[in-house]
Design a protein around this nucleic acid. Structure first.
Length: 326
DNA sequence: AGCCAGGCTCTCG
DNA sequence: CGAGAGCATGGC
């Protein structure tokens, strides 16, 4: 596969973006990059969020740093690399603010969460965490398919392998990032290559079907933006290998449908079981109904904060294991 | 060394 | 509807 490599040096003019408060870049970028220590499409270190992007055929890395406070937030967005056209600059800035969901309003959700001690604690611990979104519908769909069934750690390894193999490589300050591969790159790779990168036969077939149908126009993911939740689910369910879990995550992660609770998610089902059902296991249906009743139109934000809790829990467990093992 | 992990599809009762 | 099997891989 042809890999374009670009070395980037000279700093570019910065744009300042004002997110809807509260906004905490640290919490949001950590959440977004949780599994990607490095060699993914983005990275977070030294207080800056990095994301490789391809806009209008031009490669760039957006570097985002906080300029204000969580309650009076500002973000400095710097585009590194070859000078972009004004249009491309605007697209890149829009893309990275979309990824960080800067315009999302958290306060109504916080108001609902106040009645719920468990979630209230989460809204305090992760105050200002906006639910990160993917750059495109396809990115969310491909990421979800690659992550079906397997653990987060395994999903991370496989996704990183695919992104590195098929994405365009960008180097900045000695760090290597890759753009998330476009549908065309998956199409060129084909089933066998995807299979060799660690996807199961079914997943490789599923992604191949998505990208070939995108290529022949029978599937238009761009259109999802303007469609209702149920329409999107119906359209996605027609594809072999895509069920409720994948569709729910696409709605939440790509389209910012923060009313959608991924009720098919086993990790979320377990959290609900533990904290709201006294340990009794819950079905997909029960999880969805409970989330809808409890958090209403903000159920998707609740899911984001529940995942933040799950991750914090795992991080602490890992920490204590390391201490215990030593 | 196994068992399980942020499922989906198909089959059978 | 609900339950069960096969799929793939890496980490604990």
């Amino acid at each position: 596969m042809m890999t374009r490599i670009q070395r980037m040096g000279a700093p570019m003019p910065k744009t300042v973006v004002v997110p809807t408060p509260p906004f905490d870049l640290d919490a949001t970028a950590r959440h977004q990059t949780y599994y990607q220590r490095e060699s993914g499409a983005d990275a977070y270190h030294d207080g800056a969020y990095f994301r490789a992007l391809e806009v209008e055929g031009q490669l760039t890395v957006a570097v985002v740093r906080p300029t204000g406070t969580v309650d009076a937030p500002g973000l400095a967005v710097e585009l590194r690399g070859d000078r972009l056209s004004p249009n491309a600059e605007e697209s890149a800035t829009r893309a990275v603010t979309h990824i960080l969901a800067t315009d999302l309003e958290l306060r109504p959700f916080y108001a609902v969460a106040r009645d719920d001690p468990f979630l209230f604690e989460a809204t305090q611990s992760f105050y200002g965490l906006h639910p990160p979104q993917t750059a495109s519908v396809f990115e969310a769909l491909a990421m979800a398919i690659m992550g079906q069934q397997i653990s987060g750690a395994v999903a991370h390894v496989i996704r990183a392998r695919v992104v590195q193999a098929l994405g365009a490589q960008v180097q900045i300050d000695g760090e290597t990032l890759y753009t998330f591969p476009a549908t065309a790159e998956f199409l060129i790779a084909g089933q066998d290559r995807l299979r060799a990168l660690g996807l199961s036969t079914k997943k490789a077939q599923c992604i191949t079907e998505v990208v070939s149908r995108t290529a022949d126009g029978s599937l238009d993911l761009q259109r999802f933006e303007a469609m209702g939740n149920h329409e999107v689910v119906d359209e996605l369910a027609r594809l072999r290998g895509i069920g409720p879990w994948t569709a729910q995550w696409v709605l939440l992660r790509a389209l910012g449908r923060t009313d959608v609770f991924p009720s098919g998610d086993l990790a979320l089902q377990r959290v609900l079981s533990e904290h709201y059902f006294r340990g009794r296991s819950v079905t997909d249906r029960e999880a969805g109904a409970f989330a809808q009743e409890t958090w209403g139109a903000h159920a998707g934000l609740a899911a984001t904060y529940l995942f933040a809790l799950i991750r914090r829990q795992r991080t602490m467990e890992r920490g204590s294991q390391l201490v215990g093992g030593a």
